[in-house]
């Protein structure tokens, strides 16, 4: 009887400890889940911001006028970084070679855009891009539908495109 009487606080404490630790464990487990860690769509403000920035950036960087290549290059300097920048430089160099002869003009417009992942200052997006090219030399023009996987990083308050992969 005495042992039971003296033991009850310990027994109760043990039960309470188990309940409490389980609660903490479940809470941390839920917070650590992949879903909760991804702010895409959930953080609607940042999602909208990334969408707007990337749409604008793609439009500027992939629009090219043989008469004014400098403004496209300036946009690339401003809005591209990392692997996207390196790849773009290669593309831009070959463009610079043919563009004046063909009198080439390119334009691009984002048709649909979705943020798949948003972790802090890194975002992954799926972009449907409409592109058109016009060669003034022989008056040839074409349109194409592109699908891009884009990675963007926020650097110094600006969302920059760091990866650009056609799907």
């Amino acid at each position: 009887m005495r042992i039971v009487r003296r033991g009850w606080p310990v027994a109760l404490a043990a039960v309470l400890l188990v309940v409490g630790l389980l609660g903490w464990y479940m809470s941390i487990d839920l917070q650590r889940s992949e879903a909760a860690d991804n702010g895409a769509v959930v953080d609607s403000k940042t999602t909208a911001q990334v969408q707007a920035s990337v749409s604008q950036a793609l439009g500027r960087v992939l629009t090219y006028d043989y008469q004014d290549p400098a403004s496209t290059e300036a946009a690339a300097d401003e809005l591209l970084a990392g692997a996207a920048r390196t790849e773009y430089d290669t593309l831009f160099a070959s463009l610079q070679e043919r563009a004046p002869g063909q009198k080439l003009m390119l334009s691009a417009q984002v048709q649909a855009i979705g943020v798949k992942e948003l972790h802090g200052s890194t975002a992954r997006l799926l972009v449907f891009l409409d592109q058109s090219s016009r060669r003034a030399k022989d008056d040839e023009s074409s349109v194409s539908a592109a699908q891009l996987a884009v990675t963007a990083k926020k650097v110094g308050g600006v969302w920059k495109i760091t990866q650009l992969k056609p799907l």
């Binding site: 109760l12 404490a13 039960v15 409490g20 389980l22 609660g23 903490w24 809470s27």
Partner: peptide, 19 residues
């Protein structure tokens, strides 16, 4: 011990409920 356990139980339950 009981007091500490009560604190753990209360905070743990609250955290779980909140999350």
């Amino acid at each position: 011990l009981l007091g500490v356990a009560l604190l753990v139980a209360a905070s743990g339950s609250f955290a779980w409920w909140q999350t």
